[in-house]
Amino acid sequence: HRQALGERLYPRVQAMQPAFASKITGMLLELSPAQLLLLLASEDSLRARVDEAMELII
Rank of each mutant, 00 (worst) to 15 (best):
Y10R: 07
Q3T: 08
A34I: 09
G26R: 14
H1A: 10
L40Y: 03
I58T: 09
P33A: 11
A53D: 01
L37H: 07
A34C: 06
G6A: 15
E52G: 06
G6I: 15
A34V: 10
A21Y: 03
R49A: 12
A4Y: 13
A19M: 13
E43H: 07
L29M: 10
L9W: 02
E7F: 04
A21D: 01
F20G: 02
L56K: 13
L56N: 08
A34F: 13
I24K: 00
R8S: 09
R47E: 04
Q17A: 15
G26H: 14
A48I: 12
V50D: 00
F20E: 04
R12E: 05
A41I: 08
L40N: 01
M54V: 08
M27P: 00
L56R: 11
T25Q: 04
D44P: 06
L38M: 13
E43D: 09
K23P: 04
E30G: 09
A4K: 13
R49C: 07
L56F: 14
P33W: 11
S45A: 15
L28H: 00
A34W: 12
A48T: 08
R49V: 09
G26I: 13
R47S: 05
S45R: 13
L46H: 00
L36P: 00
A15M: 11
L39R: 00
F20R: 02
L28P: 00
S32L: 07
L39D: 02
E52D: 07
A48R: 14
L38F: 14
Y10E: 03
S22D: 10
L40A: 02
L37P: 01
R49P: 00
L39W: 02
S22W: 15
D51G: 07
I24V: 05
Q35I: 14
A48L: 12
L31Q: 04
M54L: 10
E55M: 14
Y10I: 03
L29T: 03
E43A: 09
D51A: 14
R8K: 12
V50H: 00
G26S: 14
S22Q: 09
R8I: 15
L38K: 10
L39F: 04
Q14G: 04
A41C: 07
L56Q: 12
Q17G: 03
L46A: 00
A34L: 09
R8V: 12
A19F: 14
A34K: 10
E43I: 07
R49Y: 14
M27N: 01
A34S: 09
L36I: 11
G26A: 14
R49H: 09
L37G: 06
L5C: 05
S45K: 14
A15H: 09
I57G: 02
I57D: 01
Q3N: 12
I58Q: 10
S32R: 06
A53F: 12
V13I: 14
E52W: 13
Q17T: 08
L9Q: 01
I57P: 01
Y10A: 06
H1M: 07
L46S: 00
R8T: 08
A19Q: 10
R2N: 14
I57Q: 02
F20S: 03
L36H: 02
P11S: 15
